[in-house]
Write a protein that binds this DNA or RNA. Structure first.
Lengths: 342, 342
DNA sequence: AAATGTATTGAAATCGGTTGCATACTTCTA
DNA sequence: TAGAAGTATGCAACCGATTTCAATACATTT
């Protein structure tokens, strides 16, 4: 293996000590400009590459940030990641990314790996089955910031970046009611996840505020995947009276339901008005276009990363610790799938 | 800051030398079982966490693998990444991910960061504007394996994992011809990218083999994004005679075209047969369903990562160096959008 | 019993950058 | 011009795990 160029080589080359070289390279103010330039020049000439292991070992920080998402192959998550990557790279941080595949065990294992990798901060969107945050304890103890996004734990001593899920579904429900829907079914995912629990609340509140009675038969829990439409529609069409409004917690599933409904000759929005969630590409491509909730995913990635990094840079760690929740603006987008000319 | 537990603490605790502790922890065979157990037990008791920086510094390897993709927020790329993550985590490697946002400058900068981060291997899908691979030179020189996937450089001394793009489009073209299409338009992205250049070849060969004459007016280059449909359809409908077959290099754009065509009253597949590319979710959700090429993205991620890691583990570095290309199976999926009852 | 071989363990150097403290050298003030 | 105050640089000790080279302990062979 070829020998690496070190600061010692540079030092020897310019006739100075490694100390000064180190200072010059990290822009320490107490180095004469002439000296600094000479060193930088020599470094370039020799093809010097700083060894981040030595640096991290000594400085006890890695300059990298860990991200744990439930699934990498999701339109929502990949958009969040894109936002995070942009900010992290700008600030000179590396991104170490892993997925929990919705499994608590994997999440724990990933968390340990991140801890072991000495990430300077951790961004997490919880796995569906995660009902405690024990495994982040090492981070808390060592005072390494952990910031949750989208799927945050109930626990109130962690900072989270979220949207107002309750409000979003409240608005969507109110909208369907205004469109004349008499029986609205709400389809959502695992209620252990705050996102869905909050949405259920919004649904209930909206019903209540508009004089509707909540009926648990109108709430369906599902995987919300590509194939969910058949299952969901099957259930819905068995209900009497037949529902005429459908509030589905993600666009993929909403699109799938739309297909299943059309296949059975149920007209959308006339017989059944639909509202999805996320404003994924697909919501704009199916027919009729899906009404949905715009979820600022890319922006969420940016905001989460920015906050984490600010917190690392400022020594003022209290800022984040005292912030409990950052809520981003989301909005109902009304398209054809829920617009009835009643 | 709290003191970290090191192997020295363990050594003191059990009355042995750090050397033996190190060996015990890394499963070195030359440690008595009793000793090893005693050490492992003490390590657990003390809450020992290995310091990867010290380890990496000494071992001169990082146990992490870099991935550079053009865009993180793409259905295709995120699926590839999911496959990579699975394999990497299994093998105990960390994933450092960054995006080039289709810019050569950013790709160069990312490559340098990866090199500086001392990744053990690099997986790259080229940015659109990348026309040389100069910036990977440091990797080649240091003999760090670089493996390309999907978008590979023309240069033939790099290993790449790809599908047979030429064959895929050849088949799609032949299929459209069989469906009775007389004028087939091919829409693709930046021809600097091998993926599109190869597809164009497949298109040409198929035309030739079926007695059609190639006409460059039938080739349209576009961004292939969500809004591309309007632009593309606008162009197509100006052609005389009007084309009756459309071969679009990605499903998002194909779906967008489909919408634009329907808006203008052009019937699919009767007036215009369409074939997309990738078999994204969206191809199954639009109406009519899009015929497309199944692209094994997740699998590609797995294969690329597996090959890279095998190469790192075996000291037999020649395997990868001698492999030039790994081609995965792709296949035409015929759905409604191209099935004509002619 | 001596010699040879093998299984375990340790001392100390090493990876390369950072940093507290000390020192040399300027510049400024009285 | 002496002494204070400030600036620029260097020494040497880290950070924590790995590894080479040797040393010991123990078992086996002759």
């Amino acid at each position: 293996m070829k020998k690496e160029i070190t600061i010692y080589d540079i030092a020897a080359n310019v006739g100075l000590s490694p100390t000064t070289v180190s200072r010059a390279l990290s822009n320490h103010p107490r180095v004469k400009d002439v000296t600094r330039n000479k060193i930088l020049h020599a470094a370039k000439d020799l093809g010097y590459q700083s060894n981040i292991f030595a640096s991290s070992l000594r400085k006890r920080r890695s300059n990298s940030i860990g991200v744990i998402v439930p699934k990498l192959n999701s339109a929502f998550q990949s958009s969040v990641l894109a936002g995070m990557e942009k900010i992290a790279t700008q600030a000179g941080y590396n991104l170490i990314i892993s997925q929990s595949v919705e499994s608590l065990d994997k999440e724990i294992s990933n968390t340990n790996i991140m801890f072991n990798s000495r990430v300077d901060g951790l961004l997490v969107s919880k796995a569906g089955t995660t009902d405690n945050i024990e495994h982040f304890q090492p981070f808390f103890q060592k005072n390494i910031p952990v910031l949750f996004f989208d799927r945050v734990p109930e626990n109130n001593h962690c900072t989270g970046v979220v949207i107002n899920n309750t409000q979003a579904i409240y608005d969507a429900t109110a909208h369907l009611i205004k469109q004349g829907c008499k029986r609205i079914v709400h389809v959502l995912g695992n209620l252990q996840i705050n996102v869905y629990a909050d949405r259920l609340k919004g649904y209930k509140y909206a019903l209540m505020d508009h004089g509707f009675v909540f009926d648990s038969a109108n709430v369906i829990t599902d995987e919300l995947d590509e194939d969910s439409g058949e299952r969901i529609v099957e259930k819905i069409l068995k209900l009497h009276p037949r529902p005429d409004g459908l509030l589905i917690s993600n666009d993929t599933s909403a699109a799938s339901c739309l297909m299943a409904l059309k296949k059975r000759g149920v007209k959308v929005p006339e017989d059944m008005a639909i509202v999805g969630f996320n404003n994924d590409l697909i919501s704009r491509m199916v027919e009729p276009n899906l009404s949905t909730i715009n979820y600022p995913s890319y922006h969420m990635g940016e905001v989460a990363m920015k906050n984490l990094i600010n917190h690392l840079d400022d020594e003022n760690q209290e800022i984040l610790q005292k912030t409990n929740t950052i809520t981003l603006r989301s909005a109902l987008i009304i398209r054809e799938s829920s617009q009835r000319t009643t």
